[in-house]
Design a protein around this nucleic acid. Sequence first.
DNA 1: TTATTTTGCGTGTGCGCACACATTTTTTCT
DNA 2: AGAAAAAATGTGTGCGCACACGCAAAATAA
Lengths: 357, 357
Amino acid sequence: MGKNGVRLKDIAAKANVSVGTVDRVLHNRGRVAEDVRQKVLRMMQELDYEPNLLARTLGANRSYRLAVLHPDHTLDPYWEAPWLGIEKAARELKAYGVSVLSFPYALTQVASFRQQAQAATEAQPDGILVAPLFYRESLAFFTAWQQAQIPYVLFNTHIAEAQALSYVGQDSYQSGVLAGKLLQLGQPAPATFLIAHIGEDIANAVHVAEKERGFRDYFAQLATDPAQGTYTLRRLDLPDPTDPAFARQLTTLLDETPQQLQGIFVSTSKAYEIAPYLQAYHRESLRLVGYDLLEKNLHFLHENVIDFLINQNPKKQGYRGLYALADQLVFKKEVASIKNLPLDIITKENVHYYLDK
Amino acid sequence: MGKNGVRLKDIAAKANVSVGTVDRVLHNRGRVAEDVRQKVLRMMQELDYEPNLLARTLGANRSYRLAVLHPDHTLDPYWEAPWLGIEKAARELKAYGVSVLSFPYALTQVASFRQQAQAATEAQPDGILVAPLFYRESLAFFTAWQQAQIPYVLFNTHIAEAQALSYVGQDSYQSGVLAGKLLQLGQPAPATFLIAHIGEDIANAVHVAEKERGFRDYFAQLATDPAQGTYTLRRLDLPDPTDPAFARQLTTLLDETPQQLQGIFVSTSKAYEIAPYLQAYHRESLRLVGYDLLEKNLHFLHENVIDFLINQNPKKQGYRGLYALADQLVFKKEVASIKNLPLDIITKENVHYYLDK
DNA sequence: TTATTTTGCGTGTGCGCACACATTTTTTCT
DNA sequence: AGAAAAAATGTGTGCGCACACGCAAAATAA
C-alpha cells in the first residue's frame, strides 16, 4: 500500500480482481458481474478508498474551456478586481487542464453585452461565468445555455430565476441593511439620510435596487421601536459624473439641504465622486458610506471624508466564481447554489488588511 | 506539445538535449555543461515553462509529516475553529503526500505545553505549526527546531524574535486600535472606557498585551486633537470566571462605576462571560466589544448586549498556517514571513456571512 | 454441434515528472 | 599514447489513474 493512501491496486488485490475491473465499478462503466461489483464496492468501503485527484487529473488528460463574460476592466476600475481573481483561479487551475476564454463587454452598453454573450455561446465552452448586469438581456442567454447543457455561474448580480449552477457574490439586500446601520450608528433621530445612485438604470439593475430595499427596511425596522425618533430618507438619482447635471444636482443638494442631513449612502463603488463635494462644502462630518476599496475611495477614507466602505470582495467573487465551475466539472464536487461572500465593514483602522490579498 | 502547457519534453526537444538534462538544470542538480545549461534556461524562458504540479508531486512520490502544536480544542471553544481549519487544509493536502500529527496541549498549563512540544520535536516532523501561547517556554523550542532544521510556522500569537518561517494571524496591536474606534464611535467625550482581561497572565501572553497597547494608543491619538474632549481609560484584570472573585469584582465595578462608563472592551473571546452581568444590571446600552464568533457571543450579539465582535478568523488561521508549511515544503513557493489576516468587524447585520464558510 | 455474439475481465500505454542508473564524452594521470 | 577517473548526457522505471484494447468464458444463434 502506498505511503499515503489506498490505491486502486490495493482494492484490486483485496478483491481478487484486476485494476481494470475496479476502475469499471468506480466509474459505473458496466461490464462487470453484479457479485464482483458488490465485492469491490465492499472493499472500497473497508479500505476507505479515496481517489488520488492528482493522478486522476493527470491520467484523464482532459481539458476544459471556460468562458468568462464580464465588464471590460479597462473601462471601469471596479472591474479590475474580479478579473484579477479570475486570473488567479485560472493560474491555479491550469494544471487541471482548465483554460479560460475572456469575453469582456462595455458595462454601460447593452448591445456590447449581447454581442459578447453571443460570442461566448458560439465558442461552445464547457462552462460559463457571467456577471449579468443587464437583467432582461441575460434571460435569453440563460435559456440558450440550458438548452446547450452548458453549466453557468453568476457573480456580482444575483438573478434568482436564472437557474444557474451557482451564484457567487454578496447579498445585496443585506448590504443595504448594513449600510443603514452604519449611517445611523451613534446618530440619534431626528436626522435625514440620503441614498444616492450614480449613473444607474435602476429598473434594469437588480442588485442596486436590492441595496435600496435593504437600506429602507433597516429604518423601517427601527421605526417599530417607539423609543426611537423619526428618520427621514431621501433618494437622489445622479447621472454619470461626466454629465454637467451631476455637479449641478449635487451642489443644489448641499446648498438647500436641511441641517438634518446626517449621512449619504452611495449605492455603488463611486463614493469618491461625491466626496470632493463634501470637502468643498466643509461637510466632512456628514457621514459617507459607500462600496469597495478602490484607490480613490481609499484616499477619501484616509482623509476621513468617507467613514465606512462595504467591501464587495470583488476579487474573491471572480476567484470563487471560476472555482465553482471547476468544482462542478473537474472535481465533481457538490456546488452550493448560493455562495454569499461576507459583507466586510471597512474603516481607516482595518482597511490595510483587506488590500492586496 | 501537450494540450495544455509546455512539458519538459518540449524544452528538451527545442534545446536538443534529453529530458534528463533539462531536469538537471531545473533542479540545479549540477553535472551539466554551462553552455548547455544556459541554452536550456533560455528555452524554458522562451516557452514560458511552468512545471505541472500534479505530475511533479505524483512523480516525486514524497511524503511530508507536519506536526501541529495547539491548545486542546476540547477544553476551550475558541480552539475548535483553528483545528477545523487545519483539518480542512489537511484534507486538501493529503493528495500531495502531507500527513498531520496533532499535539494538543492544555492551554492554561505550561507543563502540558512543554511536554507536547517535546513530543512534537521528537517525532521529527518535516515542519511544525504552533500556537505559542507561552512566550518564555516557546523560545527554547524555537532554538531546538532551528538546530534540527525543521521549519516552523506560528499562528494566533506573534513572536517577532521567533525566527519562524512565517506568522499567520492578526495584528493584535491594530485590533486593539480598532476596538478603541468601535467603542468610541458616536460616543462623545467625556466618557470612560474599560479594558477587561479575563484569566490571562498578561506578562507571559504577548498578544493580549499588544491589544491593550493598541487600544490605549487609539485614545492617545485622539487626545492630540484639541477639539476632542477627554476620555478616561480603566483596566480590569479578572480571574477565571469559575473563580468567585470574578463575579465579585464585576458586580463591584457595575455598582460603584461612574455614569461615564460607556463601554467595555474584552481582550479575549470571552465577552460572553461579561454580557450576562450587563443584562442583570440593565446596562445593555453600555457598549460591549469583544472577539470571535463563538456560539455564546453570537447569542449576546443578537440580543444587542454585545455591539461589535472582531473576528480573529481562527479557522483561516489554522488553514493558512498549515498551507504556509505546505507552500514551503511541497510547492516550493516563497512564503511571506507575515500573513496578517483581516480584522473583520462583525455586527448583527453582517454576522451571518462570516459563519461556517 | 459449431459459429457468432455478448459479457466479463485482464493487460498495456500514456499523462508529466523525479530519480536512479547506464552510457558516452571529456579530462587527467602515468 | 593508453588507461583510469571524472564529467556530461541519455535511458528507463514508477507514481496512481483513465481508457482503449484484447482475450477468455458464457450465452445465444445457426
